[in-house]
Measured scan of single mutants.
Amino acid sequence: MATVKFKYKGEEKEVDISKIKKVWRVGKMISFTYDEGGGKTGRGAVSEKDAPKELLQMLEKQ
């Protein structure tokens, strides 16, 4: 499965596409929420050019 690499609050993070719950576009950025486990929801964003094609496909399906 594909992963998304991004920075959040200065920390490098990587999340599996299957854990992503919601995806939306903000200008040229793709924002998303994902399941961190333990009932927590994380947030992240990547630029449109750095987003994996699976993430862009999720955006188109909504």
Rank of each mutant, 00 (worst) to 15 (best):
M1H: 10
M1D: 06
M1A: 09
A2C: 15
A2G: 11
A2F: 05
T3I: 08
T3M: 04
V4D: 00
V4H: 00
V4P: 00
K5P: 01
K5R: 10
K5S: 02
K5Q: 03
K5V: 03
F6E: 00
F6G: 01
F6K: 00
F6H: 01
K7H: 05
K7Q: 06
K7T: 10
Y8M: 03
K9C: 15
K9F: 04
G10I: 01
G10L: 02
G10M: 02
G10V: 01
G10H: 03
G10C: 10
E11T: 04
E11N: 06
E11Q: 06
E11R: 05
E11P: 01
E11H: 12
E11G: 06
E11V: 04
E12A: 10
E12G: 03
E12V: 10
E12N: 06
K13A: 03
E14T: 07
E14S: 11
E14N: 06
E14H: 04
V15W: 00
D16Q: 14
D16E: 10
D16W: 12
D16H: 06
D16N: 15
D16P: 07
I17H: 02
I17P: 02
I17L: 10
I17K: 02
I17M: 07
S18K: 06
S18V: 13
S18C: 15
K19V: 14
K19L: 11
K19P: 01
K19T: 09
I20D: 00
K21D: 09
K21Y: 15
K21N: 11
K21W: 15
K21A: 15
K21L: 15
K22S: 13
K22N: 15
V23K: 02
V23R: 01
V23D: 00
W24Y: 04
W24N: 03
W24T: 03
W24V: 03
W24P: 00
R25G: 08
R25V: 07
R25M: 08
R25N: 10
V26G: 04
V26I: 07
V26P: 03
V26C: 15
G27H: 13
G27Q: 15
K28W: 05
K28Q: 08
M29G: 14
M29A: 15
M29C: 14
I30E: 00
I30A: 03
I30M: 11
I30P: 00
I30N: 01
I30Y: 10
I30Q: 00
S31D: 06
S31K: 11
F32V: 03
F32L: 06
F32M: 03
F32G: 01
T33K: 12
T33H: 15
T33R: 09
Y34T: 01
Y34L: 01
Y34R: 00
D35Y: 06
D35I: 11
D35R: 06
D35M: 13
D35G: 06
E36P: 06
E36I: 06
E36C: 12
E36K: 08
E36M: 12
E36W: 08
G37V: 12
G37L: 08
G37H: 14
G37A: 11
G38Y: 08
G39E: 06
G39N: 08
K40D: 11
K40C: 15
K40V: 15
K40N: 13
K40Q: 14
K40S: 14
T41S: 12
T41E: 09
T41H: 15
T41Y: 11
T41L: 10
T41Q: 10
T41K: 15
T41R: 11
G42S: 09
G42N: 09
G42E: 13
G42K: 08
R43F: 10
R43I: 05
R43D: 10
R43G: 07
G44Y: 03
G44W: 03
G44P: 01
G44S: 02
A45E: 15
A45R: 11
A45D: 15
A45Q: 09
A45F: 14
V46D: 00
V46I: 08
V46G: 01
S47Y: 11
S47E: 08
S47P: 14
S47H: 06
S47F: 06
S47N: 14
E48L: 04
E48V: 09
E48M: 04
E48Q: 06
K49V: 14
K49M: 12
K49R: 11
K49N: 08
K49A: 12
K49C: 15
D50C: 13
D50V: 06
A51S: 13
A51N: 03
A51H: 02
A51P: 06
A51Q: 03
P52L: 04
P52I: 13
K53H: 08
K53D: 14
E54P: 04
E54T: 07
L55T: 01
L55N: 00
L55P: 00
L55E: 00
L56E: 13
L56Y: 07
L56C: 15
L56V: 14
L56W: 10
Q57G: 07
Q57P: 04
M58C: 13
M58W: 05
M58I: 13
M58R: 09
L59T: 11
L59Q: 09
L59S: 09
L59K: 03
L59C: 07
L59H: 05
L59G: 04
E60P: 13
E60W: 04
E60S: 13
K61P: 11
K61Y: 07
K61C: 14
K61T: 12
K61R: 06
Q62C: 15
Q62N: 05
Q62G: 15
Q62P: 11
Q62H: 14
